[in-house]
Computed example of a mutant assay.
Amino acid sequence: MATRKRVESWVVTDEFWRRVEPLIPVRERPADKEYLRKAGAGRPPKPARQVFEAIVFVLRTGCQWKALPKERFGSASAVHKRFLEWEAAGVFEAIWKAGLAEYDQMEGIAWRWQSIDGAMFKAPLAQEAVGRNPTGRGKGSKRHLLVDGRGVPLSRVATGANEHDVTQLDAALQAIVVKRKRPSQRRSKHLCADGGYRGRRALQIIESHGYIPHVVDRSKAVDAKRRDPTKRARRWGVEVCHSWFNRFRKLLVRYEKLERSFVALNHIAAAIIAFRKVSLKINIIYG
């Protein structure tokens, strides 16, 4: 009996690459700049797919950029340079938007019941969007997520670990990367949050964005679960989404110094989560 060849979890499939390739900018020489070498001379640039797969390898395995396998991806510095170029061009956020657009078309974004929460993680080398971790020693960062009813991320805000969740509530609600289509019939939308979003000001912000707030303390949620084991808090979506993000090892502990680099990696992870919610063969796993 023939055995199936094991495919690594960071390999970019053809279906996934067909979605990504149109969003990759083509490198062109500036017309107003003089060059000593003729066009086409020198070492040819790395194929875009090879570079993107190297970026996914770093995101999935958590290895350092300079530790990229040279025999497969070539120069690590060249890969990182292209990564920064694509980040500046907004490529990774565009991939996230494309994933959400296809997810909305195939499954439909579950707008009615959304949930929001923040999660802290260590950031020993970070220089931006970092603060003292209030629950332990050292520096840390925090990821604030707004997700739909199935746990797919709709917005993401990065801050220092010492920023309270409620201070980023308005920013997270404004940072939704896709616009909601006007529904055929008017339906209410709900926002579920834990006790960290209590207070008059937080409720005013939630209501100003058109949500019906559902702020429940964790202790009350535990009591309700004890009374009815089959009951699942509607806030589960954001909790499981944070878990999915942490399965990308480069995001579990932040070693990126610059905020822009760390945000770009989060955008790729969010895109993969969105694409995996549709019937698309993506080998990259997060669970």
Rank of each mutant, 00 (worst) to 15 (best):
Q168W: 09
L169E: 05
D170S: 10
D170W: 00
A171H: 01
A172P: 01
Q174H: 13
Q174T: 12
A175M: 04
A175K: 07
I176S: 07
V178S: 04
V178K: 08
V178Q: 09
V178A: 05
V178W: 11
K179A: 12
K179S: 11
R180N: 06
R180I: 06
K181S: 13
K181W: 07
K181I: 05
R182N: 14
P183F: 02
P183E: 08
S184A: 11
Q185N: 04
R187F: 12
R187P: 10
S188Q: 07
S188R: 15
S188Y: 14
K189V: 12
K189T: 14
K189D: 12
H190T: 00
H190R: 06
L191K: 04
L191T: 07
L191M: 05
L191N: 11
C192Y: 13
C192V: 10
A193W: 00
A193Y: 00
A193R: 00
A193D: 08
A193L: 05
D194P: 04
G195I: 05
G195P: 14
G196K: 04
G199W: 09
G199I: 10
R200I: 07
R200N: 15
R201P: 13
R201V: 15
A202N: 07
L203H: 09
L203M: 15
L203R: 12
Q204V: 11
Q204I: 01
I205W: 08
I205S: 15
I206Y: 06
E207D: 03
S208L: 03
S208K: 09
G210S: 04
G210K: 00
G210V: 05
Y211C: 15
Y211I: 12
I212Y: 06
I212N: 05
P213D: 06
V215I: 14
R218N: 10
K220S: 14
K220P: 14
A221I: 07
A221G: 04
A221H: 02
A221R: 12
V222L: 11
D223V: 11
A224E: 01
A224P: 05
K225N: 03
K225M: 06
R226E: 04
R226N: 14
R226S: 12
R226V: 08
R227N: 13
R227W: 05
P229R: 09
P229G: 08
K231I: 05
K231S: 04
R232T: 02
A233Y: 00
A233F: 01
R234H: 03
R235N: 01
R235Y: 01
R235S: 02
W236F: 12
W236H: 02
V238P: 02
V238M: 05
V240L: 00
C241L: 05
C241V: 02
C241T: 02
H242I: 10
S243Q: 10
F245Y: 11
F245G: 10
F245K: 09
F245H: 13
N246Q: 15
R247W: 06
R247E: 05
F248N: 06
L251T: 03
V253E: 09
R254L: 08
R254A: 06
Y255F: 14
E256S: 14
E256R: 15
E256W: 15
K257C: 06
L258G: 06
L258C: 08
E259K: 15
R260Q: 09
R260E: 07
R260V: 14
S261R: 02
F262E: 11
V263G: 00
L265M: 12
